[in-house]
């Protein structure tokens, strides 16, 4: 099934399994069903539990917190992460703090889906991956699955957990296909997944960059460079053991970050791994992140904006000190600003 279908499947499984689960968001029951991820759920589970909402992101986040305290398991969806910025007060001051500031009696099991836009002119305020902001906050979990199976498994873990979870879901992954277990499939929050095994370089990725990295890692493998590719899946808590044990083996680290470079998650990983694995490093750790600039709307200005497979392969070559053939990776059958030729906008 596709990633979007896997998200919908997780929601349906949760709604079926527990009457406390509610699903809401702007457009949740509309004819397009949030890129197909909520299609038909209101018809199946009723308007009490699956519903639209006012364009009031901050309040509706607080409503989710209150509903969670009242025994429900709410899932709130934002069609873009950028819209959720209006709700930072409720997320940071209430959801993240509730367990701690009221003495640890209980937390807020609230899942907030934030969809990350990209390309097709999404521009400065419809395309931001601000995972670092959320990962900075004690009390929040941040997950960013790359595959349909992980999307389903992490969403179900988020819904049935006891903590607030920011669920980052890349718009370009919605059409991606993959094997997805049926039923109540859960992926534990805080555990990375090794997608490829190799002894030369540790590549750490998440979300759509895990797919770009797969291409790059498979490409350089044909040239004799074997990489450990670690798909983080969870940004906070972060699976430090997985990265550390890999770097102790490879001595080389490349971190891919779908957010801006300054103050980003990659910087945190590089800093911590450098401190902990100093004696094992054979090359300075490196990172590839988004530029410290907003994303332009014009396709002419987004050409080199995103980290792609060819950049990753080139960086792997730099780490091992061997120039690798990368140019064939940049040949794509579709323009750079869409995930495939079937994507024709508008959002």
């Amino acid at each position: 099934m596709t990633y979007a279908e896997a998200v919908r499947d997780a929601l349906a499984v949760a709604l079926e399994q527990d009457p406390a689960v509610i699903v809401y968001g702007l457009g949740a029951p509309d004819p397009k069903g949030v890129f197909g991820t909520t299609l038909g759920l209101q018809e199946q589970f009723g308007a009490d539990r699956v519903f639209d909402m006012p364009t009031a992101e901050n309040a509706m986040t607080g409503v989710g917190i209150g509903a969670a305290l009242g025994g429900l398991r709410p899932v709130l969806t934002h069609q873009r992460l950028d819209f959720a910025l209006l709700s930072l007060d409720q997320i940071i001051n209430n959801a993240a703090k509730w367990r701690f500031m009221f003495g640890g009696r209980r937390g807020v099991p609230l899942t907030i889906r934030m969809i990350l836009g990209r390309g097709w002119g999404q521009g400065p305020t419809h395309s931001q991956n601000l995972q670092a902001i959320f990962a900075h906050i004690p009390g929040l979990c941040v997950v960013s699955p790359a595959t349909p199976a992980d999307a389903k498994g992490l969403l179900l873990s988020a819904i049935f957990g006891q903590d607030p979870v920011i669920f980052l879901e890349h718009r370009w992954l919605h059409g991606a296909r993959g094997e997805t277990p049926a039923g109540d499939h859960r992926v534990p929050i805080g555990r990375a997944h090794r997608l490829r095994q190799g002894g030369d370089v540790t590549v750490v990725a998440s979300s759509i960059l895990s797919l770009e990295a797969l291409q790059a890692v498979d490409h350089v493998a044909l040239q004799g460079v074997a990489c450990d590719l670690i798909d983080l899946r969870s940004i906070r808590p972060l699976d430090w053991d997985a990265i550390e044990s890999s770097v102790r083996k490879t001595g080389r680290l490349l971190v891919l970050d779908p957010g801006h470079e300054t103050g980003g998650v990659a910087g945190e990983i590089v800093a911590r791994i450098t401190t902990r694995c100093w004696g094992h490093l054979r090359a300075p750790p490196s990172r590839l992140a988004m530029p410290d600039a907003p994303e332009s709307t014009s396709p002419a200005l987004t050409l080199g904006y995103h980290v792609r497979a060819e950049h990753i392969a080139e960086a792997i070559g730099d780490l091992v000190g061997a120039p690798l053939e990368v140019s064939s990776l940049s040949a794509r059958p579709h323009p750079h600003d869409v995930p495939g030729n079937d994507f024709q906008g508008p959002f």
């Binding site: 986040t61 607080g62 409503v63 989710g64 009242g70």
Partner: peptide
């Protein structure tokens, strides 16, 4: 304020 409204929703 929204927390209270959410409790009422529950």
């Amino acid at each position: 304020v929204p927390v209270g409204v959410g409790l009422a929703l529950s």
